[in-house]
Amino acid sequence: MKTIAIIPARGGSKRLPGKNVMLLDGIPLIAHSILYAKVNSNVIDAVFVSTDDPEIKKIALEYDAKVIDRPAHLAGDHEPTVTALKHVLESLETRPETVILLQPTNPLRPEKLLQQAFELYEKENCESLFTVTRSHHKLGKIENNRFVPFNYKPGQRSQDLEPLYFENGLLYICKSDLILEETIISKNAYPLLIEHAFAGVDIDTAEDFDYAEYLYQKNK
């Protein structure tokens, strides 16, 4: 296996319990990322789901993904994603060259995104690549109960803001060696700019899920 996809999906969500098995258009949330990986089988040699949850494991196997049982100490609220990825790699007999991270909480992705991202990853000889989107918000900090503008001056037009970008979570590609060093986004990672409504979906609450359902039906 040269390139694998890893979908980390623990069962202990606090703000939206059971979110990874909730049905989005009749399909469990976790399955949307599995199906996306399967459609891109010309790039991805195998799909792995890392989970500590029996129900998620059952669904993953039903959708023909391979499952790596995640130990409890790697499934806590404050455990970083990279440790789950590292555990998957350490569980495999043969180490892949490249890992594509697909987060189940980002179930909606532009159809050709992975193909385009992987071609760029190879063309630029990247060690890691991740997707970003420009923020058009006027941002600031609160210090001593006062709002301090960060990326604008009061009265400045939104279209004149200094360009700032956020990590949208749609996908990540990196060398497996980086993950073993507990890194996903390296210092010289390539930021792939994506301007798409799907970039605003990251399911953490019931309202996030409702928004994802709305966008899914609108773009179906």
Rank of each mutant, 00 (worst) to 15 (best):
M1R: 14
A5Y: 14
P8A: 01
G12T: 07
P17H: 03
N20I: 01
V21D: 03
M22V: 04
L24Q: 10
D25W: 06
I30D: 03
A31L: 06
H32K: 09
Y36N: 10
V39H: 07
N40T: 13
N40P: 10
V43I: 15
I44W: 03
A46V: 04
V47L: 04
S50Y: 01
S50K: 02
K57C: 02
K58D: 15
P71N: 02
P71W: 00
V82L: 15
T83V: 01
L85W: 07
K86D: 13
H87Y: 13
V88I: 07
L89E: 04
E90S: 07
E90Y: 06
L92F: 14
T94W: 07
P96S: 00
P96H: 06
V99W: 11
I100V: 13
L102P: 10
N106Y: 08
L108D: 10
R109G: 00
Q116K: 13
A117R: 09
L120V: 14
L120K: 13
L120F: 12
K123S: 13
E124A: 11
L129Q: 10
H137F: 08
K138V: 04
K141Y: 12
I142W: 06
V148Y: 10
F150M: 11
Y152W: 07
K153N: 15
Q156C: 06
Q156A: 07
R157C: 02
S158M: 11
D160N: 08
G169S: 01
Y172G: 03
S176P: 08
S176K: 04
L178Q: 05
A189G: 06
Y190N: 02
P191M: 04
H196Y: 00
A197R: 15
F198R: 09
A199I: 01
G200Y: 12
I203M: 10
I203K: 07
A206R: 07
F209G: 08
D210M: 08
K218M: 05
K218W: 11
